[in-house]
């Protein structure tokens, strides 16, 4: 009598073999579909930016970037980021310290408030500041008295950018600090450290990669903000145009190569951001945290 166990196990192996062959096909079909989708929606746009930028040759490319209005736009973009990112950094650290290291009621409301800019259209973000500081705004008389201009000037751009990008660092740090818990900080306290010592010696080294990524991302969003800044800036060439706005102007003038040239700088920034993210993830995985 044939050994029933051997027979069935062979059949099982056969079944498994057929299954895995089918599985192999399914696998590659799925991978193919996913890659096609990503190619169409992600890779292509990225590639096209550089392709169009270099359409008229590298000299035109460099000239578009060196052009005075473009230079002014780049300068304004850098200035805006230089103000917005540090401020949002302080906010991010403060908010995540309060939220991650302490237990109190109302945390959910706080978290929702921090998430708010994500749910609000950028145009509305800009609109809010126009309503506050614009010609008919709530603070208009006060501003006129001191001859300060916020909307249609640099301060307005900075404010709108701060609003739209302040969640990024906080949202990066909060889950990170929550996952790390409070024991190390408590231990430091028991050993006699004061608040600043605890933060700089114990907490900061543990969050440094997440912090780096948060700052880089916040920076990328700050430099690339379009909708909100568009509302607030007044589009005055050479004065209140950031890089994204400059791109828009060039594009609307059908000056495509120039538009894409400036855009390519922003695309490069995006790529750097993604690379930093990859490095951060690799580093945190390696540490085994």
């Amino acid at each position: 009598m044939a050994n029933p166990i051997l027979v069935s196990s062979r059949r099982q192996t056969e079944v498994v073999n057929v299954a895995s062959k089918k599985e192999g096909i399914v696998r590659w079909v799925l991978i193919g579909m996913a890659l096609l989708f990503l190619l169409l929606f992600l890779v292509l746009p990225l590639v096209i930016v550089f392709y169009e930028a270099l359409q008229d040759g590298i000299e035109m490319y460099l000239a578009s970037i060196a052009e005075p209005d473009a230079q002014a736009a780049i300068a304004l973009t850098l200035l805006t980021a230089a103000i917005a990112v540090p401020l949002n950094l302080v906010f991010g650290v403060a908010a995540s310290w309060a939220i991650a290291k302490f237990e109190f009621r109302g945390k959910n409301i706080l978290l929702t408030l921090i998430d708010l800019p994500f749910a609000v259209s950028p145009v509305i973000s800009g609109l809010m500041f126009v309503l506050l500081f614009g010609m008919e705004g709530m603070f208009a008389p006060w501003l006129e008295a001191y001859n300060m201009k916020i909307v249609f000037a640099v301060p307005g751009i900075v404010l709108a950018t701060i609003f739209v990008t302040f969640p990024f660092i906080a949202r990066e740090l909060i889950p990170l600090m929550q996952a790390q818990g409070t024991e190390e900080e408590e231990a430091a306290r028991m050993l006699g450290a004061n608040g600043w010592q605890i933060f700089f010696r114990v907490t900061l080294p543990n969050i440094k990669w997440g912090l780096l990524y948060g700052v880089i991302l916040c920076n990328a969003r700050a430099m690339g903000e379009f909708g909100a800044v568009s509302v607030v800036s007044g589009h005055i060439r050479g004065l209140t145009n950031t890089m994204p706005l400059h791109v828009e102007i060039l594009y609307n003038e059908y000056n495509f190569a120039a538009a894409f040239s400036v855009a390519s700088l922003l695309a490069l920034l995006a790529i750097v951001t993604l690379v930093v993210k990859g490095v951060v993830e690799w580093r945190t995985a390696r540490r085994g945290h």
């Binding site: 024991e183 190390e184 231990a187 450290a193 010592q197 080294p205």
Partner: peptide, 24 residues
């Protein structure tokens, strides 16, 4: 205080861990 899970400062060497209370 010695914590249940030790709560050692993970990014510091043994030396820095032990010296911490003195350094701060």
């Amino acid at each position: 205080f010695v914590f249940q899970n030790y709560a050692l400062f993970r990014h510091m060497t043994v030396f820095d861990n032990v010296a911490f209370g003195l350094k701060v």
